[in-house]
Structures are given as structure tokens and as C-alpha cells.
């Protein structure tokens, strides 16, 4: 894993957070607070690179420490700009919606869709939200999405 996508920082609860704050800005590090973790697993779900796992090792241990986030993320990561530009090829698209369902930002922001199927083909609705994580590109079976660049 070489890039930080900031997706896990948007999950419910305050166990993970970006010190630089705002969603949409790039954080230089993801911090975590073990005492705030409620084991919901949302951060692990959000991460397209499987970098986070939520584990409860033993009950006693859990009570004492309130759980532990096993993390491979953090300091050693390289950083990248957060805003990505996607290029879509509607003429190749089947409108299957795999990209929209796979996009972790979509699942976090509900109504405020990043990528959506409209009139039977893909259209990037909200380029501002896109983290350029490439999950949609991997999910598309017909290569209808490309990462054009980052801002």
C-alpha cells in the first residue's frame, strides 16, 4: 500500500480521525483512539486496500483495553492529493452499477453520490468527493472508468 485515501476517517464514531480535519483535505496521518472504538468495523469496510482489521482478541483483554486496532497504516505511508479526476467511457458501460456499489465514498455519504449510474450509463456525479482509490476501476468489468489524474 503506497497511498492514503482518507476513507476510514469518515466512519461513524471518533476512533479514527484526520488531524488536519476536514473531509476533502488531505491528512498527513490517520490517528486512532482505542477507547473510542466500538468495533463496528466500518473503517475496515471502507478501506479499499484491506489495510485495517478490527479484532477482539479476548473478552478480558477487551474490557481492559477496549479493544485494539491492528494497523498496518500510519506513519510509513506515502501521501497523495485527495482529489482525483476520473474519466468515464459511457459507450462501453453496461450500467451494471458495480462501480457505484463498490465505491467506498458512496457508501459513506449516501445521497451525496460520488459515482452513479444515470440513464443506463456511468457518470461521475461529484468529482470533488472522489479519492481516486480505484475501487470502481477494479470493479468495472468492461474498463469503462480510468483514473485520468489527480489534483
Amino acid at each position: 500500500m503506497s497511498q492514503l485515501w482518507n476513507l476510514c476517517g469518515c466512519v461513524p464514531g471518533d476512533a479514527l480521525f484526520m488531524p488536519k480535519g476536514e473531509f476533502g483535505e488531505f491528512a498527513d496521518i490517520i490517528k486512532h483512539r482505542l477507547d473510542a472504538c466500538i468495533f463496528c468495523g466500518a473503517c475496515a469496510n471502507a478501506c479499499p486496500n484491506d489495510a485495517i482489521k478490527v479484532r477482539r482478541t479476548a473478552i478480558a483483554d477487551t474490557i481492559e483495553k477496549k479493544g485494539a486496532l491492528e494497523k498496518k497504516i500510519l506513519q510509513e505511508l506515502e501521501f497523495s492529493p485527495t482529489k482525483a479526476i476520473l474519466k468515464t467511457y459511457p459507450e462501453r458501460c453496461h450500467g451494471c452499477g458495480n462501480c457505484a456499489v463498490a465505491c467506498p465514498v458512496n457508501s459513506l455519504y449516501g445521497e451525496n453520490m460520488t459515482i452513479e449510474v444515470e440513464n443506463g450509463s456511468v457518470c461521475v456525479i461529484n468529482q470533488e468527493n472522489c479519492r481516486g482509490c480505484g475501487t470502481c476501476i477494479d470493479a468495472c468489468p468492461v474498463d469503462a472508468i480510468e483514473l485520468e489524474g489527480v489534483k
Binding site: C93, H94, G95, C96, G97, E116, V117, E118, N119, G120, S121
Partner: peptide
């Protein structure tokens, strides 16, 4: 007609 969540066939 603008559709959301429908595929190419459904939109047609």
C-alpha cells in the same frame, strides 16, 4: 426521462 440505478437495458 432521467433514470437512476437502471442499467442500459432498463433505461431503454
Amino acid at each position: 426521462v432521467i433514470t437512476h440505478n437502471a442499467c442500459l437495458m432498463g433505461d431503454a
